[in-house]
Design a protein around this nucleic acid. Structure first.
Lengths: 124, 124
DNA sequence: ACAGAATATATCGATAGTTGATATATCCCA
DNA sequence: TGGGATATATCAACTATCGATATATTCTGT
């Protein structure tokens, strides 16, 4: 018998990463996540509906995100929306991924593959 | 008629990213890239042979890496090895990806999802 | 009040990358 | 000379992404 939760790829996929990142910053609905991701990645990642809702479904199954039952002020709401929030497990997964990315960027910087930090050259 | 070079996914896959990163630091052979990647990612990414050689093949077709014709000192060589180096196009692709990752890490840090830099708190 | 555009969610088939197994051969050390 | 690590290669199964398609609601301007 198979386990009910299928493991997401160990380095997060870009879609999973940006969705978790968006939700770690604000509770949001699907379409909002899509727009947020476009901003956060400076247009490098555009989530199509297939990727967006497919990934959300997988993240829900994984319990890294959950649907929020409370809805905002009816005046500001849109009944079509489904709101999501990140879970503790999701934060942990995001944190692991962020540490991995940070290590990679730091390593690249050490080898002069990226401009250094503002502060780097001004300090002894 | 289809173009001969199929575009690699815009955010690089982790495999492509770590292979380019390794080659940007030193010219290497396949197995060396594998070991280097395990170090660079602190064990987060282990390239199996399928991913390793499959991705190398794709990167060669893309002309982001190329096989080096020169071989090292025969005394230090291993005839089985195939040596690779990154191309100018590969460096450009790697740089784009590094900038994307850096933006993501910086954004996360701004939202207190990662510990700040050593220097951050010591400066006004 | 109406039309049209943007918002919002959902599913599907085609494409492509990853994985783990399998295979084969060479190198190095005891 | 035997055994384990090194080194490359291919394959089938699986999984994620992508773009098209679909459907319905909300908002905006006339």
């Amino acid at each position: 018998m198979k386990t009910t939760t299928s493991p997401l790829p160990s380095p997060l996929t870009p879609a999973s990463f940006y969705i978790l990142l968006a939700l770690a910053m604000h509770e949001q609905h699907g379409y909002g996540i899509m727009k947020q991701t476009e901003l956060d990645s400076s247009g490098a990642l555009r989530l199509g509906p297939g990727t967006l809702y497919g990934t959300i479904k997988r993240l829900l199954e994984q319990a890294w995100i959950e649907e929020a039952d409370e809805r905002p002020d009816p005046a500001l709401d849109d009944q079509r929306r489904r709101y999501y929030r990140i879970t503790a497990a999701g934060r942990q997964a995001l944190n692991l991924e962020l540490e991995r990315l940070d290590r990679a960027v730091t390593l690249a910087r050490k080898h002069h593959l990226l401009p250094g930090h503002k502060f780097e050259s001004t300090l002894a």
